[in-house]
Write a protein that binds this DNA or RNA. Sequence first.
RNA 1: GCCGGUGUGAUGAAAUUGGUAGACGUAGCGGACUCAAAAUCCGCCGCUGGCGACAGCGUACCGGUUCGAGUCCGGUCACCGGCACCA
Length: 807
Amino acid sequence: MITLKYEFNRIEKKWQDRWTQENIYHTPNSSDKPKFYGLVEFPYPSGHGLHVGHARPYTAMDVVARKRRMDGYNVLFPMGYDAFGLPTENFAIQNHIHPAKVTEQNIANFTKQLQMLGYSFDWDRVVDTTDPGYYKWTQWIFLQLFKKGLAYKTSMPVNWCTSCKCVLANEEVVNGGCERCGSEVIRKEKSQWMLKITEYAQRLIDDLDDVDFIERVKTQQKNWIGRSTGAEVTFKTTQGDDLVVYTTRPDTLFGATYMVLSPEHPYINQWKDVLGNWDEVTAYVEAAARKSDFERTELVKEKTGVKLEGVRGINPVNGKEIPIFISDYVLVSYGTGAIMAVPAHDDRDWEFAKKFGCEIIEVVKGGDVEKEAFTLKDDTGIMVNSDFLNGMTVKDAIPVITEWLTKEGIGHQKVNYKLRDWVFSRQRYWGEPIPLVNCEKCGWVALPEEQLPLLLPEVESYEPTDTGESPLAPMTDWVNTTCPCCGGPAKRETDTMPQWAGSSWYFLRYMDPKNTEALASKEALEYWGQVDWYNGGMEHTTLHLLYSRFWHKFLYDIGVVPFAEPYKKRTSHGMILGEGGEKMSKSRGNVVNPNDVIAQYGADTMRMYIMFIGDFEKAAAWSDNAVKGCKRFLDRIWNLAENVAEGDEYSKDNEALVHKTIKKVSDDIENMKFNTGIAALMTLTNQFYDKGVNKAEFKTMLQMISPFAPHMADELWEQFGFEGYASTASWPVYDESKTIASEVTIAVQVGGKLKSTVTVPMGSEEAAVMEIVTADSKIAKLMEGKEIVKVIHVPNKLVNLILKPKA
RNA sequence: GCCGGUGUGAUGAAAUUGGUAGACGUAGCGGACUCAAAAUCCGCCGCUGGCGACAGCGUACCGGUUCGAGUCCGGUCACCGGCACCA
């Protein structure tokens, strides 16, 4: 009945227009149907346009969303733009265009590209983080954090990207370089707005138990937060000041033979007058301050340090005086910035002790502490040289000593986290203004909510400054304002928020994107609740994903959202690599542009291929040839349409495989095993070529390919005169009992080795199977002169015969 | 160093979780159609030996458990990702 050629360009345009006109993917905020909220990470609309890396997660979630829609869910599947950020700003600087203008053009381009791929987004819900109507609420959330004391300004050494001329959060420093541009990161003392994410550290760990995130995301977040349990112990000093250290091994206190302060420790200045080698000390402190993070953490280098002459610590367990050093292997930002060193049982301390000639005392039996530190993998070592701990295992000694320290008032149990507070200000133009003013009398004051959004002012130059000031700083008209509290003169904060601000809550805005009274209405927040399924990149695990969980918990605490966790389920996709397995990059010239693929093969082929390319969670290399294979598959389905026989029920030949395929494809979509789901559809198509296909079977096929190739499915659906659209049809159901064929081919093994196969009726008993097996010529031959010792029969799978020579 | 992951044909990968290894797709080879090519359709396609029926080997490597191991256990190697002087 079909005589037309498969003109994918015409067909895809036709259906994209039709879907838009009929608005078939519009999502109401209430429904009798169960709700499903599927989310993908919204893109940063760069000038380069959409790349194939976007297409993988977007297509995957589109397939899931389409299938869930067919399953009868009210599906929220939205899209938006995370548009604040440096590339746009840099482009604007170079080309003398306002970043807002650049953003507008890029968004238009991205939207067009996304529509060309046939995604079923509800386009009425698009959000743009740079829209004042949006960032009003980003600022509002910041103000709530400020009011609850979770945003504070402090001067501290921060990471400074020398190229972006901007501070970075710890999460943004990768291998000592800038996460975005890779440039060198140095430390700089600056006054910065900080968010107290550390206050949520424990909850961010604990609540991972309540969500369905893939394991590597959970462990990566846990490692990043880095919880450890130990003890804080107070050491007296000959100077009279108490020096508090943190240790995870209080059991080794008797082996603490010296102490180390980080070069930034406040006691160093405090002890200035008593230190006999002050010049040497200051020289070391200054040298440490000049080092970049990278230099400081380089492992290969030798330990350095300076002994403080004139002050000694006193080990509280035995009253022994021990030397105090400063060294940059101790970090200010972790624990108390000071440690007790136990060289016998810590590699770093051992190395330092050897170099500086410190005493090494073994307190756990088992190693040779003169040769190397004895660090235990388990906690079953036996304590020695440790007075009342002697003879105990490490495991038993820890609580005993901790209790003793507590009783004596010189220590207590303590939990520490590697996580640090979130450095939240940026010295750049294209970000959300921080809605605070500084008044000489009142200090930092929040803008009243009715003054939000605080708009970005027009500036003459967006360029970042070498002084570390924001480009907003010279805008005196804007900066100078009055204090909302006392009416006196005040200055606005000129730093802006980091890129991660807008993305920390965007999924809530989708629920009610046009609300002017709240970030979203109570009803919408309650109706949509948690994101049911969020797919995104592993690179955001300790950035966006962690930040947004933190913000969400805060919003939960102040009663704005009804759930403590934003995302019920999190999955992650692997990267798409270039043809040779190398990372795609302009310099390698192996970048695949989705527009080209669509022009040559069509969006349906592009979608099909990107889902068929391999295991969704793993990296996969692009292959032009394999794209052709997917095009061929779609052609084969199209060509099949001409030979569809009449029939309202599945034929005998195809029935079992059709039911089996429905089951397979349904399960595979839910488990993101798209590649094998598509393979099953190919197998079914091959059988249709072999055995013929009728209308009922073909209709089911169209329903199943609809999530993957929605344009073709809708076109053929219409040509066959089926009701409505394939896109909105119901998902086919399978009958478990019909997935089973009447006969089954089973393996026949002798001694565990495959020797033959036989076909038996489904569900045959052992006796019946054996009758057929012994009649098999190959088996009969093998059994000559042998007798059966044992038969292992696995119904519908195999029989295994154990033979031995006849006596 | 610590944490996580992976290792299967020429190649991208499958394998109902202990039951016929290599489904499905690429590439390759052969055939049909065509003046020819492309497209399409049909067939073959792990390695070794043999004309052949067939036999032996085979899931990084070594060993173990089992009637039976890609899958489980112990050890080794290689690669990828994250964290990294966190006391």
